[in-house]
């Protein structure tokens, strides 16, 4: 039915237009964003847990490392980190592969304004198919997001660990638990209630940071909105239209508003569930209301 769009009436024209292969790519890229969120959130939590734990460590260099990692979230715009890490990680991987695969390479890697590693160390290999390049780019973006948001999460978890009443830990020590046991059996189970508001906030922030994927060179929804929205003449497409980028970005705006709104409602419910029966102000208020 979509064979000759110029003959269609308005509604079916729009229906055909919105299902062109390029639009399908736009819808797929929503999947890219969602999978970024699905992978990054646990990864960032893991990084954050590692950061917070090392910031509490009794080994001084490890503690410095943890505190330094937490401190990077302050003072510097996060987007600078995004732009930095994507290149830095890429070069880091290539440098390591270069050292392993071509130990006899005579030339320096940095020559003036160039970064040259041997062909075998290229990431991904020059001969690799297109999807490998795209996956590698996505992987770099995920790692970058995980590092930056891991620092935010470390900040939240570090604060949560300090909010667990100290008497709990002292009691554990009095019962003869080792520091390791105290940490895993007493501190970690109790810290989540304190961490949840911060982590919920972080989740919202993470959602709102996903359009930055565009800056990392991934073909995400921002990329496709710009591509598809631009004015098209009849010479290049069956669906000529004027500059519609405004409407595409309006669509993205609505998409994000709905997404954050739904998250907010779900997080509220979750918080209510978790405070239920807790010895906190919130839990007490719930008990009185019931």
């Amino acid at each position: 039915m979509c064979t000759d769009p110029s003959q269609l009436d308005q509604f079916s024209w729009l229906a055909c237009y919105l299902t062109t292969p390029k639009h399908m790519a736009l819808y797929w890229s929503v999947g890219t964003v969602l999978s970024l969120l699905a992978i990054t959130a646990p990864a960032a939590l893991l990084f954050g847990f590692g950061g917070a734990t090392s910031a509490r460590s009794r080994i001084t260099p490890l503690r410095w490392f943890g505190k330094g990692y937490i401190a990077i979230v302050r003072g510097v715009p996060d987007i600078a980190f995004f732009l930095f890490f994507v290149i830095a990680l890429d070069q880091g991987f290539e440098w390591i592969r270069h050292q392993v695969k071509c130990p006899d390479w005579p030339d320096p890697i940095r020559q003036g304004n160039d970064f040259i590693v041997c062909a075998a160390a290229k990431m991904p290999l020059g001969t690799a198919p297109q999807w490998v390049h795209e996956t590698y780019g996505f992987f770099l973006a995920v790692l970058t997001f995980a590092i930056v948001f891991g620092a935010f999460a470390a900040n939240v978890l570090y604060g949560a660990m300090r909010s667990v009443p100290h008497a709990q830990l002292e009691t554990a020590a009095a019962y003869g638990m080792t520091p390791r046991q105290t940490f895993w059996r007493i501190l970690v189970p109790q810290m989540w209630v304190y961490a949840l508001p911060g982590l919920g906030n972080l989740w919202m922030v993470l959602i709102k940071a996903t359009p930055l994927l565009f800056l990392l060179g991934v073909e995400d929804i921002v990329y496709w909105a710009r591509e598809l929205g631009g004015a098209k003449t009849a010479r290049f497409t069956d669906y000529p239209h004027a500059d519609w980028r405004m409407w595409y970005f309006f669509g993205l705006l609505v998409f994000y508003l709905l997404f954050t709104r739904v998250s907010e409602v779900v997080l509220d419910r979750l918080m209510k569930r978790l405070t239920h029966g807790q010895a906190t102000v919130g839990g007490e208020a719930q008990r009185k209301a019931a």
């Binding site: 921002v222 710009r226 500059d243 970005f249 993205l252 705006l253 954050t260």
Partner: peptide, 17 residues
């Protein structure tokens, strides 16, 4: 509720139209 990045894009194209 929406990313500042998208707000910039939307506003720019809105002003353009």
């Amino acid at each position: 509720g929406s990313p500042l990045f998208i707000q910039f894009f939307f506003a720019y194209f809105l002003f353009l139209s």
